[in-house]
């Protein structure tokens, strides 16, 4: 069964438009008939230019928004079913962009326990969950710290632990690395991969960094409220012209590999990670060297 499934998902909203002093309501479509299926355990990156509907889609997965057309199912639960709202939100958690807007308590462990406490989990179990969640994000040593003393990456990891404490099966990261410095970004990315690989949590990562998307197993690309590309990083990043037309780009490793290939080096197509390129180049270099008399 899919963990996330949308069928013909549409979302429109009204805005007030002021044309020549005359105000009138205009309908805007943020999502236009989007159908999508995510299998449990996938690591998916969602790319798309500003305003393409990525965040609107994310908010539907967490039932923060309800479709105005079509349907969204999370583990078979229809997000329009109000009675299942809390089940849906604890199945599909969400981490936002600004770490400072997501922390509510003055001590890290209390912040992490806030979610489960709110839904009436017994105290004993809350502490178990807090401990396990902090361990999963590598923040156990900071359990008693004040969140405002942490770095951006650490705060984001606390926010992730808070989501983990709800025992979600899926986490949506809505540009959760955008405000972080390079080390903070790496910390959060490593945490995401570990949760995916070790805890089998389905990860949806919305990002503008192509290098981050290259780490995913599957990339979805949105444009004007629709899904326009769906494939592995290799399949997606070999289409640099199409990506450019969609306001996107390719990772620097891909660009460098493409340029080297154009200059005559026999590199395979579809390289998208730094390590991959370094390995291929080293391999090529040794092969050529051995071929020498």
């Amino acid at each position: 069964m899919s963990i996330i499934r949308t069928e013909d998902l549409t979302y429109q909203y009204k805005v007030l438009s002021d044309e020549e002093g005359e105000e009138r309501e205009v309908l805007k479509k943020a999502l236009r008939g989007l159908s999508l299926s995510v299998r449990p355990g996938e690591f998916i990156a969602i790319l798309g230019r500003n305003g393409s509907g990525k965040s609107t889609l994310a908010k539907h997965i967490n039932a923060l928004l309800m479709p105005t057309g079509g349907t969204v199912w999370i583990e078979g639960m229809n997000t329009s079913d109000e009675e299942r709202l809390w089940d849906i939100r604890s199945t599909a958690g969400m981490v936002f962009q600004n770490p400072d807007n997501q922390i509510v308590a003055t001590v890290v462990e209390e912040d992490v326990g806030f979610g489960p406490e709110n839904v009436g989990i017994p105290t004993e179990e809350i502490w178990e969950r807090v401990e396990k969640s902090l361990k999963a994000v590598g923040m156990t040593a900071y359990a008693k710290s004040a969140p405002h003393r942490l770095s951006g990456g650490q705060k984001q990891r606390v926010a992730i632990a808070g989501v983990m404490a709800m025992k979600p099966k899926c986490i949506v990261f809505d540009e959760s690395t955008a405000m972080l410095d390079p080390v903070g970004r790496r910390e959060v990315l490593t945490t995401m991969r570990e949760l995916n690989e070790q805890e089998h949590i389905t990860v949806l990562l919305i990002t503008h960094y192509m290098e981050e998307a290259a780490l995913a197993g599957r990339i979805l690309i949105m444009d004007q409220g629709q899904l326009v590309m769906d494939g592995t990083p290799r399949e997606v990043f070999t289409q640099s012209e199409k990506l450019k037309a969609l306001g996107l780009s390719v990772p620097q490793a891909t660009r460098l590999a493409d340029e080297l290939r154009a200059a005559g080096l026999a590199l395979p197509a579809g390289i998208c990670r730094e390590e991959e390129l370094a390995e291929e180049l080293a391999l090529l270099y040794r092969k050529k060297k051995e071929a020498l008399p």
């Binding site: 798309g48 500003n50 962009q97 405000m179 503008h208 450019k244 996107l248 780009s249």
Partner: peptide, 10 residues
């Protein structure tokens, strides 16, 4: 350029 897509950033 924080939060901008690659095109907007460029």
């Amino acid at each position: 350029t924080a939060g901008l897509d690659p095109e907007g950033r460029g």
